Amino acid sequence: MKKKVLSMVLSMAMATAMLVGCGASSDNNETIKEEETAANAEGKVYKVGIVQYVDDASLNQIVANIESQLDLLAKENGCTFEYEDYYYNGNADSTTINQIVTELINDEVDVLVPIATPTAMICQAATEDNQIPVVFAAVSDPEAAGLVESNDAPGSNVTGTSDALNTEAVLDLMLEQNRDLDKVGLLYDKGQDSSAGPIKDAKKYLEAAGIEYVEKTGNTNDEVMLAADALVAEGVEAVFTPTDNTIMTAELGIYEKFIEAGIPHYCGADSFALNGAYLGYGVNYATLGKETANMVAEILVEGKDPATLPVKTLDNGTATVNTETAAALNLDYDKLRDMCDGLVEVQTAEEFD
């Protein structure tokens, strides 16, 4: 009888030890698995399909930094990221983007990297069955777009980086620059998902401040030019645009209209200021591009599951001022320095370095 009891006790102790061991080592096992995957990356070639929504300074900057960071990570890991033969620009045309994504899937790319919300949504739909990893860049509201279940736990094959805009911070800068504002123009493309939330927030902010606003929209360069003319005719004293790719594409064609009318243009990205707008505020797109590339490497080299990789939202806080435009508008932007984590000065150009 004693032998039987002793045998049972030993069996229970062993079982308990095994259960405790399994619970304690699950994280370690995952770490070991990722380390083994990274070690096996030596000499491997990964096909990276990059799909840019449209040609503009913001998105071009993201792509350039994704590519340069992938080159750096390739050297560090002894592998190759092939992207040159798998990069496409969709020219803001959904039919074209769908064709591009289909071709990339047929090319058996290892990951899709869509730049901007419309492109990310097309990639998501195209990978529901094949579950090719999708790492998006510059999606302002991934949850609202239905790309992820939540930013903290995507829960699918889709994750990436977000350029969510702090609209209130931009408008705070606008009011600090001119505390007597009576009328503000809102310039955006109704078809851009990235603009919907910020424009709603801007209206709420301006209504609370007792400031009149005028909305003008456009989804082509010609329509944006007409919208800018309409805002000038309406007598607005400042214009706000969120991280809107359509307006970004047209900025080089409208900034002089606003300067001639004495109207500062406040926007949701530094690249707007590079293309002539008075001030851009928000995400540093160079950093965003690098972080996107880092996530690609985490998935391909380290073997991480996109479903478990939280969306990375970069901190806002840097204002970029076009000094030429500021001088033309006779605006003193030094008063804004204390309201930002940083203030960068640029002059008008077509692209960032």
Results as ranks from 00 to 15, higher is better:
residue 3 K to R: 15
residue 13 A to C: 12
residue 16 T to R: 10
residue 36 E to Q: 14
residue 52 Q to D: 03
residue 62 I to M: 12
residue 63 V to T: 07
residue 67 E to V: 14
residue 80 T to G: 06
residue 86 Y to A: 03
residue 88 Y to G: 04
residue 89 N to L: 09
residue 96 T to N: 08
residue 98 N to D: 13
residue 102 T to D: 15
residue 104 L to S: 06
residue 105 I to D: 00
residue 107 D to A: 14
residue 123 C to E: 00
residue 136 F to L: 12
residue 137 A to L: 04
residue 137 A to I: 06
residue 150 S to K: 11
residue 154 P to N: 01
residue 156 S to L: 05
residue 161 T to G: 02
residue 162 S to M: 02
residue 164 A to S: 13
residue 167 T to W: 08
residue 170 V to G: 01
residue 170 V to R: 03
residue 180 D to G: 01
residue 182 D to Q: 13
residue 185 G to E: 02
residue 186 L to R: 05
residue 187 L to E: 07
residue 195 S to E: 08
residue 212 E to R: 03
residue 226 L to V: 00
residue 235 G to Y: 09
residue 237 E to I: 10
residue 242 P to L: 00
residue 252 L to G: 15
residue 255 Y to A: 10
residue 261 A to W: 04
residue 261 A to Y: 01
residue 263 I to E: 07
residue 269 A to G: 14
residue 271 S to Q: 10
residue 276 G to S: 05
residue 277 A to D: 06
residue 281 Y to S: 07
residue 283 V to S: 12
residue 285 Y to K: 10
residue 286 A to N: 04
residue 291 E to Y: 03
residue 296 V to G: 02
residue 296 V to T: 07
residue 298 E to F: 05
residue 302 E to I: 09
residue 307 A to Y: 07
residue 314 L to N: 05
residue 315 D to E: 15
residue 316 N to G: 04
residue 318 T to M: 14
residue 322 N to A: 02
residue 327 A to N: 14
residue 327 A to W: 00
residue 337 R to S: 13
residue 339 M to F: 13
residue 347 Q to Y: 02
residue 353 D to V: 04
